[in-house]
């Protein structure tokens, strides 16, 4: 029997809805499982989990503060390093380079995003870390040694190296969002600024940077979201030592790196659960950060369109 066309369409529609629902339910199930798996650690330590920096799998004592500290400091430092560079590169590509060169540099930047983080980790471990130990750290110590951040001995592996790698890895994210934001500015405004006799620098400042301030903020926050969750490259160069130290030369650990290091080998229930708890925290934090960033960027693009 032939099925009528409107029925065919209804079946297809129902099928698509069904698959979509499957995906949604899957996510709900996963999040539920994550909560369930963290419950043991949550019952044991409660919210003081995030306030204690004592992490000792042997004695089944767990506190995540050192990891939270490591994640926050590496992410912020990498943002500090990558932010200005990315904004400059975005401006350079969009406003200064001729079309061909611009697309080449654009592809270069996007290629950075395509490099697997394990490759960055390998490079960081064998080349960047020694370089930091032999050149960057002594240099910083010599000129900025009076600041506690740059005191202590550097073994190459540590927070500074991890931040440098992270900075490289988040540049493409920030650059591409910034380019998107700058592109939404009408040409008319740029020409108006130049027509008033502004130098190129003044034009960029007046017609591009100032009006897209919130968009740039959004790009930075998106970069932050990427940095928070980055795992392998950081795990390979940070030293995985859950301590809180004021020195950037010191080794450390992040929420993602501790999971990568200990999850497969964790044998006590509580240890696994504590790692899931950290995973849950990381999940919630990156979600909030991404949501925040998207709202900013979205508002910005809506504003400049109208």
């Amino acid at each position: 029997m032939k099925i009528s066309y409107s029925k065919q369409d209804r079946y297809v529609y129902t099928g698509l809805r069904f698959f979509s629902l499957v995906v949604v339910c899957l996510l709900i199930a996963i999040i539920f499982q994550l909560f369930k798996a963290s419950k043991l650690a949550f019952d044991e330590f409660g919210l003081s989990f995030v306030l204690s920096d004592f992490w000792n799998p042997v004695e089944d004592e767990f506190g995540a503060l050192a990891f939270i500290y490591g994640t926050v400091i590496t992410s912020l430092l990498s943002l500090l390093l990558a932010g200005p560079v990315s904004i400059f590169v975005a401006i350079f590509i969009n406003e200064f380079l001729p079309k061909k060169l611009a697309s080449i540099l654009g592809v270069f930047v996007e290629l950075i995003a395509a490099i697997p983080s394990i490759v960055f980790g390998l490079w960081g471990l064998y080349y960047l870390a020694p370089f930091v130990k032999n050149y960057i750290s002594p240099f910083l110590k010599k000129y900025l040694g009076f600041i506690p951040l740059f005191q202590g001995t550097s073994f190459g592996i540590g927070i500074l190296t991890a931040s440098l790698i992270l900075a490289i890895m988040i540049i493409p994210t920030i650059t591409s969002v910034c380019r998107e934001v700058f592109r939404s500015i009408p040409n008319l405004r740029k020409e108006a600024a130049l027509g008033l006799g502004a130098t190129k620098y003044e034009m960029v400042k007046l017609a591009i940077i100032n009006p897209s301030f919130s968009g740039i903020m959004g790009a930075l926050v998106l970069g932050l979201g990427r940095a928070l969750g980055e795992t392998m490259a950081v795990a390979m160069v940070i030293g995985n030592n859950p301590v809180i130290s004021t020195s950037l030369f010191s080794s450390g650990a992040t929420m993602a790196s501790v999971m990568a290091n200990e999850y497969a080998e964790a044998d006590s229930e509580l240890h696994l659960s504590a790692l899931c708890y950290i995973g849950l925290l990381l999940f919630v934090v990156t979600f909030i950060v991404n949501l925040f960033a998207r709202t900013i960027v979205w508002n910005n693009s809506r504003k400049s369109r109208s």
């Binding site: 199930a29 996963i30 499982q33 994550l34 798996a37 979201g225 928070l228 969750g229 980055e230 795992t231 993602a256 999971m259 990568a260 999850y263 790692l275 899931c276 995973g279 990381l282 999940f283 990156t286 979600f287 950060v289 991404n290």
Partner: peptide
């Protein structure tokens, strides 16, 4: 899209 890949690993581990 925004979930860190290590957390994706935990998802699959739990399931």
């Amino acid at each position: 899209t925004g979930v860190p890949s290590i957390v994706v690993g935990i998802f699959s581990y739990l399931i």
